[in-house]
């Protein structure tokens, strides 16, 4: 996925979010790359509609039921400064894989209030779900094998935009990958 394709996918997702929601939504990015994607979607929505949506960040790590990567990265503060009660909240993440991160995020957001609905936007859906979770807005469906890894690179973090599929051997060398 090239930088242009990535940008167009986000533009489309932003339009879809507006189309599906009559009332203003709140955009919440999941750490770490989901936050950058959420910020872009939020910017796109405000440039389309002229109104800036509420924006927040969430680190669901404290709510995970597996700790494969739990302690590798430090816990980051979540920032949700607006009331989420009776709001439509759109969670944004880079890759949807097992669904466990999203399950944790659903629990996490509940500690901030009771949204009227929670929707999910992801840049890449790579399949292999382990939980009954699906995305409402998908940038691109990428069929993968379990041993492979999807690497999302963003200007803000990695200096460049794009999505690459790492084959098994490359995935091990890269050492990343979580759902």
């Amino acid at each position: 996925m090239s930088a242009d394709q990535l940008r167009r996918a986000l533009v489309r997702i932003s339009h879809e979010i507006l189309e599906q929601n009559e009332r203003p939504v709140a955009i919440v990015g999941l750490h770490s790359r989901g936050v950058e994607l959420a910020r872009r979607i939020s910017d796109l929505i405000s440039s389309i509609e002229g109104v800036e949506p509420d924006f927040g960040t969430l680190d669901p790590r404290l709510y995970r039921d597996d700790s494969d990567s739990a302690s590798i990265k430090p816990v980051v503060p979540s920032e949700i400064t607006f009331p989420v009660d009776d709001r439509a909240v759109v969670l944004v993440d880079d890759v949807l894989y097992t669904g466990r991160t999203i399950r944790a995020a659903l629990d996490a957001i509940r500690d901030f209030g009771r949204p009227s609905s929670i929707q999910l936007a992801v840049l890449v859906d790579r399949g292999h779900r382990e939980l009954p979770i699906r995305a409402d807005y998908v940038g691109k469906n990428v069929p993968t094998a379990r041993g492979e890894d999807v690497r999302v690179m963003l200007e803000e973090v990695d200096g460049t935009d794009g999505v690459t599929l790492l084959r098994q051997s490359e995935a091990i060398a890269y050492g990343g990958g979580q759902g």
């Binding site: 790590r61 404290l62 816990v75 980051v76 503060p77």
Partner: peptide, 11 residues
């Protein structure tokens, strides 16, 4: 690592 995580815990 611990000092950074403490930020998240403070939140």
């Amino acid at each position: 690592h611990i000092l950074q995580s403490a930020d998240g815990m403070n939140e």
